[in-house]
Computed example of a mutant assay.
Amino acid sequence: MVRVLGGPSSVKLAESICSEMRIPDVKVEFKRFPDGEFYFRLLEDIEGEDLLVVQSLYPPQDQHIVELLYILETCRELGAKKLIVYAPYLAYSRQDERYLPGETVSAKILAKLIQDAGASELYTVDIHNRGVLSYYHIPAYDLTAAEEIIKYFVSKGVENPLILAPDGEEDAIRRAETAARAIGTDYDWLEKHRDRRTGKIVTVEKPLKVSGRDVVIIDDIISTGGTAANAARILKKQGAKRVYVGVTHALLAEGALERLKAAGVEEVVGTDSIPGSVSKITTAPIIARKLRER
């Protein structure tokens, strides 16, 4: 039987997983010293146990990464049989190669650190670039929150919406298709271009079957909100009734929500991969289903 060890970044999520799977947690103690250094202690014996270590790596990501490494190394040294990492938000997943000379391949370094600390398996949710997982020599899985996101909007009265991917990347289209299939509706996508040096996003408009319909934009990460806002403006211009945004990882940099509202978005909803004011959907059922399949 797997037991759940919740790290500092994901205490409530770990509790939700325990409740969802009806499995016990591991009692631990953690704190920060006045100088900012991290303290972690296991309060019970975990020798020979399989542990699900729940620690999402959202900002401050460097702090959360160090916490995860300390937890994994401690559990390994004290005899845990298997250490399954559940990091719904996996930091540094955008830099999987050197785009410019001299750059750090941060995704590769993070993979090495997590594995060297003792991880046996890794699960994440809607990773920005699936190619990152090729750096893991342990089993590494990308799950999706698309079905949970669209079910939330249906529960709030959204009927027969178009599901829209705000860009034409393969993973984005796959998420939209998953959400559409879950409720028996249709989906579409837009194309975007981003300047790697300036970061400016340009979304290419095309005809969409949205006149008089609700639309749910499904995205993996929203930081500035630029991509989703561009899509929302196109949708409203073409006569969409109401536009909603469902995002797995709601980073929401300063001004992002205001930008989306100004573009005509009715509501922005995220998951508990990143705790916050819009985090109304739990990812607990997602990891629970996967672990039950093992």
Rank of each mutant, 00 (worst) to 15 (best):
A140M: 04
R194K: 14
I173Q: 04
T144A: 06
L143F: 13
I217S: 05
G212P: 11
A140W: 08
L164F: 07
A179G: 10
E191Q: 13
Y187T: 02
H193R: 15
L164S: 06
E205Q: 12
R197Q: 13
Y136M: 03
K206I: 12
I201P: 07
I150G: 01
A182H: 04
D195L: 13
I138H: 03
I149D: 10
G212S: 05
R175A: 07
Y141I: 13
R181Q: 14
I150Y: 00
E159Q: 04
I149C: 09
A145G: 14
I173T: 06
T198V: 01
R213F: 09
T198I: 03
D195A: 05
Y152Q: 09
A145M: 07
I173L: 11
V158F: 07
L190F: 00
G168E: 13
I149G: 10
L143M: 12
K209T: 06
D188H: 07
T185Y: 00
P207Y: 12
V202G: 02
A145C: 11
S211E: 15
D171F: 12
R174N: 13
T198C: 05
S211I: 04
Y187I: 01
K151H: 15
P207F: 11
Y152H: 12
I201Y: 06
S134A: 15
V158D: 03
F153S: 09
D214L: 05
F153P: 03
E170H: 10
R194A: 04
T198K: 08
K192R: 12
E169D: 14
P139Y: 12
I217T: 06
L164W: 04
A179T: 00
A145I: 11
T198Q: 08
E177C: 06
V215E: 14
A165K: 02
A140V: 06
